[in-house]
Write a protein that binds this DNA or RNA. Structure first.
Lengths: 262, 262
DNA sequence: CGTCTACTTGAACGGGGTCAACGAGTGTGG
DNA sequence: CCACACTCGTTGACCCCGTTCAAGTAGACG
C-alpha cells in the first residue's frame, strides 16, 4: 500500500500494516500517514519469559504487539496474583495507570515482537493528525470490554462456565488475527496462568478442563485448544463474541451517522 | 475563570469547571477553550433509579457525571448481574463497547446530573484541539485502573478484604471530588448493590460489614460509611489509593519529561 | 395498618480450595 | 547412558469459605 510515501521507515511501515489489518482495520488518509511517518517506533524482541514492563516501573511509551503471546498480571503482597489479560497480535499494552508507573507486569509467554512508541512521539503524531487519537481510544475501549468480560467471569460465572468462556474468547481473538479458526487454536498458556486469570487454583482448573473434555466440548492438550463441539460450548458459556469488536468509530474513521469534517 | 470568552454557553462553562476541578485537573489554553465553546453539551437530569443507558442500546454520546451516584452493571441471562462500577462526579460513562451498542446498563442510585456530549461533536472538538483527546485518554486509563482493581478484588482477595478495599476506594474517590474526608463519606449504595460489585451474596456481604464493625474498623449504617480505624483498615485491605490517580499526562497536558510542541 | 424494600441472623449445604502425591516431558550434568 | 532436577499436568481425600434456604426485624410510605 502506502506507495505514495517512498521515504517511509520500514518499522513504521510494518506498524501501519498492523493497524490496517484485522481486528483494528484503520483506514488512513494522507494526513495520518504523514504523521505516522514521523513517528519514533522501535521494534523490540522479547524472548519467552522475558518481561516488557515490570510492576512499579516508570512508563514512557506504549507497546503494540506484533507477534507472540503475553501475560499481563498484578502481583499482590500475599503472593497471590491476578492475570488481567493475555495480549496477542494487535493488542496494546503499557499506558501507565497510576502516578506515572505501571501497576502491572507484562511478560512474554512465547517470544514476542512489539512496537514501542514513546508517548511524546505519539502525542506529536496526534497533534499533527488528531484522528490518530481515535485509534488509541478504540484500543482502550476494546481493552475495557475485555476487562469487563473477565470481571464478569470471576464475579458471577461458575468455574466450568468461566473456563469455557475464556477459552472461547482467546480463540476468537486468535482467529481475528489469523492464528486459528473455528476448530481451535494454538494456546501456549499454561494451566497455572489460566487459573490465575480465572481466580481458580490450578488443581481446580485442571478438573474443569477435564470435565469439558469428558463432556465432549473441548480438548486442551500440548499447547493446543480444539473445540470438539463449539455450538454446545458457546451455549454452555453463554458466549457472545460481539463484546470485543471495535466500533466506537466505524472503519472510515468517522462517527457512524455523523461523518467528521476534514 | 474563562472570562476571556464571554459568549460561552453556560452548560459548556459548567463542564469546563468540572474538567478543571480535581481529580481531572485539566489545564486549558485558548485553543482548547475555543474548541470546547463549540461543543454540543446537554445537561441531563436523571431521577433516582432512572437509567442513563440501557444494555443493548445504541450509543451516540458520552456522559460525564456532574453530581449524584450511579451504578454500571451487566445483566446475565441467568439472572445474575455484575456491578462494574459506581460512577460519581467527574467519572465518565457511556462510550460504546461493541458493535455500536452498550453492553452494560448505567442506572442512577441517587438523582444525577450528567453532561451528555454527542460523539460527533466531541470528535469535531478533538479535531480542532487535539489535546482534548488526552483528557479522554486519561479518563479511559483511570477507568481501566478501577476495573483492574475490581477484577483483582473478586479474583484474589477474601470477602472481608475486598469489602474493605472497595469501601476505601469509594471513600477516596468521593473525597477527591469534595464529598467526604478521611473520617468517612455518605454512601447511598445498598448492600445488595455492593454485593453484586464484589461477587458476594448480600447475606455474606452483610456478615463482612458486621465483622468490620465488630473489629472496630468501619461503620456502615444509614447510607453513611465511617472509618473507625482507617490505618488498620488500609493495612487489612493492603490498600493503595495511588492506582486511580490520573497521570498519563501531567497537569500541563504534556508528557512528563517531554513537553509537547504547540 | 399493610406492604414495600433494606437489613439481619441462623443452620445446613456444596463449590472450590488445600494438602499430598504421582506421572510425564524436558533439559542438564556426570 | 542414566540419574537428577525441574516444570507442567493429573488425581484423590478432606475441609472451609461463601452460598442457599428460611425466617425475622426495622424503617418508609401508602
Amino acid at each position: 500500500m502506502h506507495n505514495e510515501l517512498h521515504t517511509i521507515n520500514i518499522t513504521v511501515s510494518a506498524l501501519i500494516d498492523l493497524l490496517k489489518a484485522p481486528p483494528i482495520l484503520a483506514d488512513f488518509e494522507n494526513i495520518e500517514l504523514r504523521a505516522l511517518a514521523s513517528l519514533q517506533v522501535d521494534e523490540r524482541r522479547v524472548q519467552a519469559d522475558g518481561t516488557i514492563i515490570n510492576q512499579g516501573e516508570r512508563i514512557r511509551s506504549i507497546h503494540l504487539v506484533q507477534s507472540g503471546w503475553g501475560c499481563v498480571y498484578r502481583d499482590l503482597s500475599n503472593g497471590e496474583r491476578q492475570v488481567l489479560d493475555f495480549p496477542m497480535r494487535s493488542d496494546f499494552v503499557g499506558l501507565r495507570t497510576a502516578a506515572g508507573r505501571s501497576y502491572n507486569t507484562v511478560a512474554a509467554i512465547t517470544p514476542m515482537t512489539v512496537f514501542e512508541v514513546p508517548l511524546c512521539s505519539l502525542a506529536n503524531a496526534i497533534q499533527q493528525a488528531p484522528k490518530l487519537s481515535f485509534i488509541l481510544i478504540e484500543l482502550f475501549a476494546r481493552q475495557r470490554s475485555l476487562l469487563i468480560e473477565h470481571l464478569t467471569n470471576v464475579g458471577c460465572r461458575s468455574a466450568l462456565v468461566r473456563t469455557a468462556h475464556l477459552l472461547l474468547e482467546l480463540g476468537d481473538r486468535a482467529k481475528a488475527c489469523g492464528m486459528g479458526d473455528d476448530k481451535g487454536f494454538d494456546c501456549p498458556i499454561t494451566q497455572y496462568q489460566l487459573a490465575d486469570a480465572l481466580g481458580l487454583t490450578p488443581i481446580h482448573l485442571n478438573r474443569m478442563v477435564r470435565e469439558l473434555r469428558e463432556e465432549g466440548l473441548l480438548m486442551f492438550k500440548n499447547s493446543r485448544v480444539d473445540y470438539l463441539n463449539r455450538k454446545a460450548l458457546i451455549a454452555l458459556a453463554e458466549y457472545d463474541g460481539e463484546f470485543m469488536h471495535m466500533s466506537v468509530f466505524d472503519k472510515t474513521m468517522s462517527y457512524s451517522g455523523a461523518p467528521l469534517q476534514s
